[in-house]
Amino acid sequence: MSYLHVLNGDAVLPAFHQSKLPGEFVVCREVLCEGKVKNTQDPDVFFQSRAKHLEFHYGIDKQSYYTQVVQELEKLKPSGSLQEIILWFDSDLFCQFNLLFIIHLIRQRFKVLPLISMVDIPRHPTAENYLQLFDTRTTLTDTDLEIADDIWDALCLETPQALELFAHLNNGQFKHMSTAITAHLARFPNTENGLSSIQEFFLKRLQMGEYRWQDLYKLFWDSMPDYGFGDFQLDIMTNRMIKVGVLEQDDQKLKITSLGLEILANEENYLDYAPMEHRWLGGVRLKTSPWRWNKKLGRLVAMQK
């Protein structure tokens, strides 16, 4: 039987190679929980938009994006011998949104779908994990694939109401999706001081004392595992907070500023100092969006302008 394995990121490649599982593999190197995702059914248009956005706002060279990300995903196309696609993804937000896109891409490119199965892998899989989980993989039904595609479409919309609805629905075999969506929605500016869930976590920890960057990141990874963000994403956020003036760096350590303390006390609002012009969460442009995260209600609410 001919297998095509889809892996989320290069970090898992050594363990996968050691497992010696049969078949070819594709590595998804995207970070689709970060930045703008265009609402389109055309993969070429999507990648063009994505490349432009990542180059301008994240410093990722367009040519590098096409070489490392798009060309790799070109392997995810029909082949006469292909009989099954196996999706290996973790439970966190980072992996779950990439998983949605991969299913969306498969449905766009394949007129006749092969068997598609999914494996719920641990955070740091070993070769033994791959061997054991291979035989317990879950076959995705047509209904499952439609659910995933519907959630992806909701993520790409200009307003987040449809996506939030999926946080409260039965999402079939995607048992981690509700948690991932809720974690994503909590990144919207909150109603009290305009901070996202992660920004508020950082400021609260630094309120108790200085931290080295990596020590603060480790606290985040241990305390908020539902995100699965790497150094790249956290560095972007931290540097933005430094530019805004709520954090400052002193001898390789991060500490909170007086403005950061005032924002934590709800005496100031982060959005009054942070430019939102080119900030996106999925298809939602934060500059023009009235939606804010209400921590007490655990849901989004529309604020009056």
Rank of each mutant, 00 (worst) to 15 (best):
G9E: 04
N171I: 10
F166V: 05
Q48Y: 11
F220S: 00
A302S: 15
E164I: 05
P275R: 10
L99S: 01
E34I: 09
I102S: 01
Y58M: 10
Q41C: 09
E158R: 10
M1E: 12
T136M: 13
F25K: 07
L115I: 12
K296L: 09
D231W: 00
H176K: 13
T67K: 15
T257E: 06
L4K: 08
Q249F: 07
R212L: 04
D150A: 09
G282D: 05
V31A: 07
P22L: 10
W88L: 02
L206D: 00
G80E: 13
N39L: 14
G172W: 07
I256G: 00
I236H: 11
H278G: 06
N239Q: 15
L297Y: 11
H278D: 13
L133E: 03
A127Y: 08
T126E: 05
A162M: 14
Q83S: 13
D10A: 09
T191I: 14
V6E: 03
K255E: 02
M177V: 03
Q71W: 11
V26H: 00
S289M: 11
A154G: 10
E30M: 07
G194V: 04
F188A: 01
E164M: 13
K287V: 03
A180F: 10
G260W: 03
V69W: 10
C28D: 14
S289R: 08
E267M: 14
F201E: 00
W221C: 01
D44C: 07
Y66N: 12
L145H: 08
I86E: 03
D150K: 11
D153I: 08
T238R: 09
E128D: 13
D10C: 06
L155P: 02
Y270I: 05
D231V: 01
W293F: 14
Q18H: 14
A11C: 06
L163R: 04
K295S: 11
E146V: 12
A167M: 10
S49T: 11
P122A: 01
F166A: 02
I236E: 07
L32G: 01
I85M: 09
Q252N: 15
Q249P: 05
L157W: 04
L73R: 02
Q83D: 12
D44Q: 14
S223H: 09
N98R: 08
A148K: 05
Q41K: 15
P125A: 07
G282C: 05
P22M: 08
D272W: 11
L261D: 02
L203A: 01
M241K: 07
Q68A: 09
D251Y: 13
F47W: 15
M208T: 12
A302E: 15
C33P: 00
D142K: 13
M276P: 01
G282F: 02
Q48K: 15
R109I: 08
P275Q: 10
L105G: 00
W152S: 01
T257C: 07
R123A: 07
P189S: 05
I103V: 15
